[in-house]
């Protein structure tokens, strides 16, 4: 019995908790991608760099606050700095829309032109982030490290396996729940939210009903910028801030959005957790887990790892391909792309 409990704790510690946190970050990112896809109808390749851009401002504001002695210990200062990052990301999103995307929207350019344009925006943001803060790893987390420590957990339960919950992980999950609830309430109840859903569903019908396209697009960018910054900051607190990793997050984020059904907000959230759990379960080494649960004679010699962690991108890709073959609309019947 104790072995089983130990095994459960072990899995929670190394699979469930990290995957929940990572999944939340992906869900927030995928929500942004899916919103832009639903409203503006293109896959925004600049989203990863938008995340890096917003987070960069959070990092710089955090440093400034740390220097000025501002702190909300035990919570990380970055939370206090978050509004600055959000403001910057929203501002730059609206600016690029005004300067770049609006022209193609008015011309009714095909979706692929938008995608190529977003690659141009990606280059710009990428360069700006590297020029301002550099390409290296930056740490900006402070405050308490853990909500639950391994040692305390062991002492409290008497098990030999411990469970740790980092503050950043707890924070990620809590913030994600709050943000997702707020966003869904907004989309379901508010006038603008309803207009956005109507516009995403059927543009012509929405326009005929008096929905203002400029307002819908404005809100879509503002929300995407906000979500991108929150997702980027939480990811940075949980792991670390490095511009290139944010670019690489693009793939799992797209996978999450497509698995759930692109253009579908609930799908994006579910997709985020699906991708995260698949990635973590496939790259976890089950050796210790099997030692607990399997009979003595079955003890594995190797690590019992299906894929080494370097191949985690393969997981996103395989999920993409499977969805594409089995159910191209995604789980929640989003748009077919």
């Amino acid at each position: 019995m104790e072995d089983i409990l130990n095994a459960v704790v072990l899995l929670s510690n190394f699979v469930v908790v990290p995957a929940l946190a990572y999944g939340s970050q992906l869900a927030l990112g995928a929500l942004g991608v899916t919103l832009i896809y639903g409203i503006l109808r293109f896959a925004n390749f600049a989203h990863g760099d938008l995340m890096a851009f917003g987070t960069m401002f959070v990092v710089m504001a955090t440093w400034w606050m740390q220097g000025a002695g501002l702190s909300i210990d035990p919570l990380p200062t970055a939370l206090l700095a978050l509004p600055f990052g959000i403001a910057a990301a929203v501002a730059v999103s609206l600016l690029t829309d005004r300067a770049v995307y609006r022209f193609y929207r008015r011309n009714k350019s095909p979706a692929m032109i938008f995608v190529i344009v977003s690659i141009g925006v990606m280059f710009l943001m990428n360069g700006v982030v590297r020029m301002v803060i550099g390409p290296d790893d930056r740490s900006f987390g402070d405050g308490a490290r853990f909500l639950i420590k391994v040692k305390e957990f062991r002492e409290a339960t008497g098990l030999s396996e411990g469970l740790a919950l980092k503050l950043s992980q707890g924070l990620t999950i809590a913030v994600t729940v709050a943000v997702v609830v707020a966003l869904f309430r907004f989309l379901q109840k508010s006038r603008t939210g309803k207009a956005m859903r109507a516009y995403s569903d059927n543009e012509d019908l929405a326009l005929l009903s008096g929905v203002s396209p400029d307002r819908v697009v404005l809100f879509a960018w503002a929300i995407a910028g906000t979500l991108a910054t929150i997702a980027g900051t939480l990811y940075g607190l949980d792991k670390s801030f490095k511009p290139f990793t944010y670019f690489q997050l693009l793939l799992p984020i797209f996978a999450a959005a497509i698995v759930g059904g692109i253009g579908h907000p609930v799908g994006a959230v579910v997709g985020g957790y699906i991708v995260a759990f698949s990635e973590v379960t496939v790259t976890y080494a089950y050796r210790k887990f099997l030692i607990y649960v399997a009979p003595e004679s079955w003890r594995p010699e190797g690590l019992v790892q299906l894929l080494s962690t370097e191949y985690k991108f393969a997981v996103s890709f395989v999920i993409l391909v499977v969805v594409l073959l089995v159910r191209p609309t995604g789980i929640f019947r989003g748009k077919v792309i």
Partner: peptide, 21 residues
């Protein structure tokens, strides 16, 4: 064999993944 025959943005994301793999 796997990814063609789909709309362009899907191919884009699939090839992005292939390159990383």
């Amino acid at each position: 064999k796997v990814a063609l025959g789909l709309r362009a943005d899907y191919l884009a994301i699939a090839t992005l993944g292939i390159a990383e793999i």
